[in-house]
């Protein structure tokens, strides 16, 4: 029962462009902002998240008939946390420099909204093969986005990419771009460009570029908590209070 939406290539394209977790869904902001100080760190973070995403998507998809519906969130958390621990060990053993640079952001992959979001929106409902490709697509989309942001920040902020100097010696690096404010600034401009590109598409699909993320609530990590009830998102609840 695989329709066109579940074809492997379509899943990968979906993750990289159509529903890019960083630029379109605005998920996983903490690692996106924190680990893009250089292209190397960005790649390290992106690939470890991809590995965990593929593994947890596969595991959750295989176990979806066994896990009772009410227990699914705690089970997902334990599955994801186990894979994160494994990846943590592997990185510590084989890539100690990247491990040291990423620090606590490696164990924090557990609370990365993308992984929980995909488990909830996709892997918990579909077969294992589609779920692997969905994880792969989303992971690659995440990695590419991180690499893009990391490269821009490294070029502007330090004049290098992957540690290799590419700007002329006369260029004075704008140090603030590899510090905290630069992360917010670069991210803001990337999303603004994405919005500009999508404003035309918005008229056709009804996607509202002024909303935070896409219209599909089910791909949001909070969906597991709020269950689609809009009032729980806090914003609406706050608004109701003001109106009342």
């Amino acid at each position: 029962m695989t329709d066109k939406k579940d074809k492997p290539l379509e899943r990968i394209w979906n993750g990289i462009y159509v529903e890019n977790p960083v630029f379109c869904l605005i998920l996983g902001m903490c690692p996106t902002l924190a680990t893009t100080t250089s292209a190397t760190n960005a790649i390290g973070m992106g690939l470890s998240t991809t590995a965990i995403l593929v593994a947890s998507n596969l595991m959750i998809s295989l176990l979806k008939g066994i896990i009772p519906n009410r227990m699914r969130i705690p089970s997902y958390i334990v599955i994801i946390a186990s894979f994160v621990t494994i990846v943590e060990f592997l990185m510590e053993g084989f890539f100690p420099s990247v491990y040291a640079a990423l620090g606590i952001y490696i164990p924090l992959i557990v609370v990365n909204c993308i992984i929980m979001g995909r488990a909830e929106a996709y892997a918990g409902k579909k077969g294992p093969v589609e779920s692997i490709f969905d994880g792969l697509g989303m992971g690659l989309g995440f990695t590419l986005a991180l690499l893009l942001i990391g490269s821009v920040r490294e070029i502007v902020g330090a004049g290098t990419v992957f540690g290799i100097r590419i700007t002329p010696a006369a260029y004075e690096p704008v140090n603030i771009f590899i510090l905290a404010p630069g992360a917010f600034l670069v991210m803001a401009f990337f999303v603004a460009v994405m919005n500009k590109l999508k404003i035309g598409a918005a008229r056709r699909t009804g996607w509202d570029p002024t909303e935070n993320g896409c219209s599909d609530c089910s791909s949001c990590a909070r969906h597991s908590v709020c269950g689609g009830k809009k009032a729980v998102s806090g914003e609406e609840a706050g608004m109701k209070e003001v109106q009342a």
Binding site: P181, F184, M187, V191, V193, N195, P209, T210, N212
Partner: peptide
């Protein structure tokens, strides 16, 4: 706010300025 900057991007720019201030 310019149309492309409405919503998320302008909030990020605000956060960037706050971050500079906290620096």
């Amino acid at each position: 706010v310019p149309k492309a900057f409405q919503g998320f991007p302008i909030v990020m720019i605000t956060a960037a300025l706050m971050s500079i201030a906290f620096f």
